[in-house]
Computed example of a mutant assay.
Amino acid sequence: MLVKPKAKNARAKRFLVAREAKVVENPKTAIIVRGSSTSQVILDTLKDLYALHKPHAINFTKKNQIHPFDDETGIEFFSRKNDSSLFAIGMHSKKRPHNLILGRTFDYHLLDMIELGVEKCVPIKDVGNPTCAIGARPLMVFNGETFAQDERMILLKSLLLDFFRGEDSDRVSLKGLEHVITVTAGPAGPNGEPGLVFLRTYTIDLKKSGVRQPRVELTEMGPSLDLRIRRVRYPADDMWKQAIRMPKELKEPKVKNITRDGLGDKYGRVHLGKQDISKLQTRKVKALRKRLDSRPAKKQRTE
């Protein structure tokens, strides 16, 4: 367990307060860590991941003796020091060649991570096409049923969405959509294990189409990665409940008897008590008055 630092002066206190939990959190920062032994494939992969995540990314150029599956204290130290909640670690060994680890932390403690083998990498520099602007958020497309069925693929999808989501916004302009990342699940292995995962990145070109909606063309930008899932570490139940808990300020107040359908239309239900129609006040007109014939006849006086 890491000891929480204490403020020694007012400046340090303001610094620690800025790092505390907020109702609306800052964009997640990712640290790109280089292991003690790497290959050119891993170096190109880490460089491109850093380019896609800028400006909310920190690149470690020096070698680090770090193995999060064996000892998680190292990555937790880096997470607290750099105020980051995402990490990507690249390393290379004979047992696990071209190894890439993607993971998340919560409250500077390791939450979950997944180990991937990079079997093929075509970096951005080798493609040579125009790239997107720094800080642009991508469109994410996931192809394959396994992303909703297999637990390892579900975790990979969650990590990739968290890694490339960027800043939250209420509105998106068409001109701001500059690139798209497609993740396709390959055929499963003979024992049911997930197959290769193909990650491709394209730039979006909006062309004139003669109508209001533009014609969309995709141009390969890079990187192009062929990944294979290796080891997985799932989050603990208690930590996961804390990580996905929504603040009270962001919860919509529950309104009774109001529902929405699948199209987003709002419907309200009003409950009325039992009404007595005989006592209902109506307009007093001559046609609604009681006729004289309906009145009881008066008794005649007998002599």
Rank of each mutant, 00 (worst) to 15 (best):
K4V: 07
A7N: 04
R11Q: 08
R11F: 06
A12S: 15
A12N: 03
R14V: 01
V17F: 02
A18D: 15
N26Y: 09
P27V: 11
T29K: 13
T29D: 06
G35H: 08
G35K: 08
S36Q: 12
T38F: 02
I42W: 01
D44N: 14
T45K: 02
K47M: 13
D48S: 08
D48I: 05
D48R: 06
H53R: 15
H56P: 00
I58D: 01
T61E: 11
K62D: 11
N64I: 07
H67T: 08
H67R: 08
P68L: 08
F69P: 00
D71K: 12
E72S: 12
T73Q: 09
S84K: 02
F87E: 06
A88N: 02
M91W: 04
K94D: 15
P97V: 12
P97Y: 00
H98L: 00
N99H: 14
L100E: 03
L102H: 00
F106S: 06
F106T: 03
D107F: 05
D107T: 07
D112M: 10
M113G: 09
I114Q: 15
E115V: 00
V118F: 11
E119D: 13
E119R: 11
P130F: 05
R137G: 05
P138L: 09
P138W: 13
L139P: 00
N143A: 12
F147T: 03
E151I: 08
L156Q: 02
L156R: 04
L161C: 15
L161E: 13
R165E: 09
G166I: 09
D168Q: 10
S169V: 09
D170E: 15
D170N: 04
V172A: 06
G176R: 11
A185R: 00
P190D: 15
G192I: 02
G195L: 05
G195V: 07
T203W: 01
V211K: 13
R212G: 13
P214A: 03
L218Y: 15
S224I: 14
L227Q: 05
Y234H: 06
P235K: 05
A236R: 13
D238G: 01
K241D: 14
Q242K: 11
I244D: 03
R245A: 14
R245C: 07
K248S: 12
L250V: 10
E252G: 04
E252P: 03
P253D: 11
K254C: 03
K254E: 10
G262D: 12
K266Y: 03
G268E: 05
G268P: 00
H271D: 12
I277W: 07
I277P: 02
S278Q: 09
Q281W: 00
R283D: 14
V285M: 10
K286R: 08
R291K: 14
L292D: 13
R295Q: 07
R301T: 11
